[in-house]
Design a protein around this nucleic acid. Structure first.
Lengths: 209, 209
DNA sequence: CGCACTGTTGGCGTAGCGCCAAGAACGTGT
DNA sequence: ACACGTTCTTGGCGCTACGCCAACAGTGCG
């Protein structure tokens, strides 16, 4: 929209940017569009138009539309697993669970749009690469929980149980942020209660099975 | 693959079928292909080829490729919510929960492919129609559970909690059928224990929140 | 036996993506 | 200052796939 601003003499026919800068710019536009519309309804032409570049440039940076999309998803799924609070040995299990849930909900609330978009990207057909990304993210969350809860020697079974729990957490969060059928406090009660029951009672029972 | 079998005199250039028959045939082929490959990698041409018809016929019956896909998803998501066993007043809550989980797992195991495909179809971008279908299916499952458990007057909050539970069930089932990190008995313990805890303790607590 | 009805074909128009060669801005050495 | 090589950017070609539609063919009815 802005004029080319040719502060120098010759009027440049296009503006040349350093590699990372242009890349990030395109990625930002793509991110916004992919979180607003379904994959098929976002054309590379539209992305290029909004970014003010030619379509071919997208291929130059990302190869294919799908790879661009995957890059966007990768960006979406790393945000809310970054800051790990230090585990506190003085807290009881119930208190730790409560803290864990609060942090989780804080993160979800802070960037609700991104959160929901990331969940929606999940299950895009049978795409193995996409599944890998989502699983990896879920595993990071699980490890995160294990650390906070100071579980001595987590078994693979416990990890699987917690992965299932993350499924509960995702749908519950959606009930809150999207469907509005639950309030934040209610989701908190639900998630904290479930997690506590899982860790203290159910997971041990599953281990014994 | 079979020869046109022109039992009558004139060799027919194509075989004409009654509306529903042809429709179901195409739907069957589409169903198989969509459960094997991601949406974008299934072309209408491929579906038509495998069904032994011209591509245009698909449009005649279903309008667009997306509508065909949605029709397939609708078909996938009604199967395992059909047969509702009669609620038995003599069973305790724990026993009923156990039965409920067993039936669920039976259904999932019986058609594992279909089940997983249905879950994968979920979250296909932001498609509102697809989201509606999935939500509706989930709601049917929830009502199903409510009936079996003979809950007197289910509140919307309880429904939301059970919807979240279905998220847990989905991921847990996938841990069993797909990732193989849990056995059937373990998933059973997990789902039964969680559902019981949710109904007896957690859901009431959420109601009070 | 002709006639309307509808399942079915085959092809046209178009949109979108992958790719590539030429061109333009920029840094560098001379 | 000027040529040169590098890297970013453009513009367009080719192909695939989808939506659409007019014509055709099989089928039942009067």
């Amino acid at each position: 929209m802005a004029s080319p601003s040719p502060s120098r003499s010759s009027r440049a026919s296009y503006q040349r940017l350093p590699r990372d800068e242009r890349r990030d710019q395109i990625l930002g536009v793509a991110r916004r569009m992919f979180t607003e519309l379904p994959y098929a309804e976002v054309s590379t032409a539209a992305i290029a138009r909004e970014a003010g570049v030619q379509r071919g440039l997208i291929h130059y940076y990302f190869g294919t539309k799908r790879e661009l999309f995957l890059e966007v998803v990768r960006g979406l799924t790393v945000d809310y697993s970054g800051q790990a609070p230090p585990p506190d040995a003085r807290l009881s299990t119930a208190e730790t669970v409560d803290l864990c849930v609060r942090l989780f909900l804080d993160a979800a609330e802070a960037n609700a749009d991104t959160w929901l978009a990331a969940l929606d990207a999940e299950g895009f057909g049978q795409d193995p690469e996409l599944r890998r990304i989502v699983n990896k993210t879920r595993d990071i969350t699980v490890e995160h929980m294990l650390t906070m809860l100071r579980v001595p020697d987590p078994t693979d079974t416990l990890r699987a149980v917690l992965r299932a729990y993350s499924g509960l957490a995702e749908v519950a969060t959606r009930q809150w942020l999207q469907e509005k059928t639950l309030g934040r406090a209610q989701v908190h009660t639900l998630l904290a209660g479930s997690l506590l029951a899982l860790i203290t009672d159910i997971a041990p029972a599953v281990e014994r099975t």
